[in-house]
Every structure is written in structure tokens, then in C-alpha cells.
């Protein structure tokens, strides 16, 4: 990559960042009355849309930039696919790659062939430029990519670039919540497998600490038990948290493991996660367990008490118990 190219990219990024604030209107700023624009409807083309987007990056209006991105995505199903693919393949500017990649993925998600989405997956894993790989990865966020790209995510979390690895983690987390509502076994298993495959402990911890494991397989649960015994405290804390949400057949074992681990563990972060997971696995029935652990670590006595108070409300949903715990802690 040349210095000129890097400079151009930095300038482009600076321009787009500095123009985020909404602004009333250019005309008002200059005070020049302008004639009304003609606003004629036209057929969209790949090149025309790309030109608009390139120029639109300079716009002070976030609404306009959002519109152009959506327009390209919405157009993907009716634009000539060959032109769209060709534009994607020759584009090297990461921001533009991301727009085109999002459009190709959108085409698949509208019910069309998986080939266009797979093209994005290929670029995400194989492009020479890490910024392009990161951009293509971002474009796969909240799409059906996990279902059409095999072991892509287990590879992305091992990418040489930390940015790509973290973008992949974000995809897995957001897909888990926003595409699958946390109750889709294969998506959660993909996330656990990727977390286990990564050698970047920050990525592993981030994934495990932020996904729902409500529908994971027995094998994924086993992975969590393995990760619980790792060297990195952040990973152990996240694995402990993930074990709190496992399906019914795994709950009893998870509880036993976590109680035993609490006594052996010395890291306060891991212990905090264990307390949360014990509360989640048992609700009111966890109160005696929590009382039994109360004096193991004096630093966590207030945390144990907070969980006991929250569970004593008798609320029957985890999200409400979490809310209640926070309310009670803030009220004190």
C-alpha cells in the first residue's frame, strides 16, 4: 500500500467523521436563494449509485448518507448482478467496498442466490488489505452469512488483523441477538466454536460474554467447561457467564461446576461472573447456594447480597431480575 493511498484514505475518513453532526442547510449558511431542483425519477444504475455515494460521503446530512446506503442495498435485487459483482471486485476503497458488500449480502437475504453473499465472505477472508477484510466483514453483520459461509467465522477470528477479528466477534454477537433472538442453536454453536477457535483472548471473552447460550448443543456446553479452565481470567469470566444461560439438560452440571470453581478461583472478575450465573441458573433456589458462598471472598459480599435481594423479589424472568438488581443497587 502506498503512502499516497494511505493519506487519501485517512482524508476520506476524516471528512466523513468530521461531518457527522447534522446541519440545517447549505443554502441557509450561504444565504443564497436557489431555484428548486428538478427531482426527476430515473432508473438506477450501479455506476450512478456509486458516484452518488462517493459524493454523498461529503454530505453533512447523516439522513442523506443513510438513504444512499439503503438505496444501494434496496437496488441490489434489480440491478444487473454482473455489474454489481464487477464493481465490488475492482473496488479497493474500504468504505466503498463495505457499501457494495452490504448490497451483495442484501441480495441474498431478499431470497436470491447465496452466491453474492458468499462472494463477500470470500473477500472478508482473503483480501490482501486488512481494512478491506474488516469492511467486508462488517457488511456481513445482521445478515444470514452464518448459514451460507461454512467455517468462515472460525477463520475470521484467527485473522492476522485484530480489527478483522473484533469485527467478526461483533457480527457473531449482533447476529445472535438481532437475527436469531438468542434462541437459535446453530447460531449460538457457531459463536461458541469461533470463540474457542480464536487465539485472541479478548475476542474469545467478548463473544462468550455477550451471546445467549439458551439453545447451544451438548458439545458447545462442553467447550464452555473447557474454556472455564483456561489461563486467561477474562476468558474464564466470560465462559462462566455463558454457562449461566445454558439449556435445561446442562443446567445442573453447570451449577455444580460453578459452585466448586468459586472456591478455587481467585480472580474477582471470574467470581463476579460465577455469582451471576448461579443466580441465573437457580433463581430463588440459588439463594442458599449464594449464602453458602457469601464469606468466601469479602470483596464480593455486597455483590452476593445484591443478588440475594434481587432474587428475593420472586420475579420469574432473567431480564427483570437483572433490571431489579440494578435498581436496588442504585437505590442504595
Amino acid at each position: 500500500m502506498t503512502r499516497t493511498f494511505l493519506l487519501a484514505r485517512a482524508l476520506c475518513l476524516l471528512t466523513s467523521l468530521s461531518l457527522l453532526a447534522p446541519s440545517p442547510s447549505f443554502a441557509e449558511a450561504t444565504g443564497t436563494p436557489l431555484p428548486p431542483p428538478s427531482l426527476q425519477p430515473e432508473t438506477c444504475s450501479v455506476e450512478g449509485l456509486m458516484d452518488s455515494i462517493r459524493r454523498g460521503l461529503q454530505s453533512k446530512s447523516p439522513a442523506y448518507r443513510r438513504y444512499l446506503r439503503e438505496l444501494l442495498k434496496e437496488s441490489a435485487v434489480t440491478l444487473p448482478e454482473e455489474q454489481l459483482r464487477a464493481a465490488f471486485e475492482r473496488e479497493t476503497e474500504p468504505l466503498m467496498v463495505e457499501h457494495l458488500a452490504a448490497a451483495l449480502a442484501a441480495k441474498t437475504d431478499r431470497g436470491e442466490s447465496v452466491a453474492t453473499l458468499q462472494l463477500v465472505g470470500k473477500r472478508a477472508s482473503q483480501d490482501a488489505d486488512p481494512a478491506v477484510r474488516a469492511a467486508a466483514t462488517r457488511a456481513l453483520r445482521r445478515t444470514s452469512a452464518e448459514e451460507h459461509t461454512g467455517d468462515l467465522y472460525s477463520r475470521l477470528v484467527r485473522d492476522a488483523s485484530p480489527e478483522v477479528r473484533m469485527e467478526a466477534a461483533t457480527n457473531l454477537i449482533e447476529d445472535n441477538q438481532f437475527v436469531y433472538a438468542g434462541f437459535h442453536g446453530p447460531a449460538s454453536d457457531t459463536a461458541v466454536a469461533a470463540a474457542a477457535a480464536s487465539s485472541d483472548s479478548k475476542v474469545t471473552a467478548r463473544i462468550l460474554g455477550n451471546i445467549s447460550t439458551a439453545a447451544i448443543s451438548k458439545e458447545s456446553a462442553e467447550q464452555l467447561h473447557t474454556l472455564l479452565r483456561g489461563d486467561d481470567a477474562e476468558v474464564r469470566a466470560a465462559a462462566a457467564k455463558a454457562l449461566g444461560g445454558v439449556p435445561a439438560p446442562e443446567m445442573s452440571r453447570a451449577r455444580q461446576t460453578l459452585v466448586a470453581l468459586y472456591r478455587d478461583e481467585s480472580d474477582v472478575g471470574v467470581r463476579t461472573s460465577i455469582l451471576q450465573s448461579l443466580a441465573r441458573l437457580g433463581f430463588a433456589s440459588a439463594v442458599p447456594e449464594l449464602r453458602g458462598l457469601r464469606n468466601v471472598d469479602p470483596r464480593l459480599v455486597p455483590e452476593v447480597d445484591a443478588w440475594i435481594r434481587a432474587l428475593s423479589t420472586g420475579l420469574q424472568e432473567w431480564s427483570l431480575i437483572l433490571r431489579e438488581k440494578q435498581r436496588l443497587q442504585q437505590a442504595r
Binding site: Q177, G182, S319, L320, L322, R323, Q326, R327, Q330, A331
Partner: peptide, 16 residues
């Protein structure tokens, strides 16, 4: 136990 000003409570999943 009402609180005059709280940081935002944990949003229920639906809120997101």
C-alpha cells in the same frame, strides 16, 4: 424508594 435520577435501567431485550 423512588429515585429522582437513575442511569438508564437495564433495558429489556425488546427495548433494543
Amino acid at each position: 424508594s423512588r429515585l429522582a435520577a437513575l442511569t438508564a435501567l437495564v433495558a429489556l431485550p425488546t427495548a433494543a
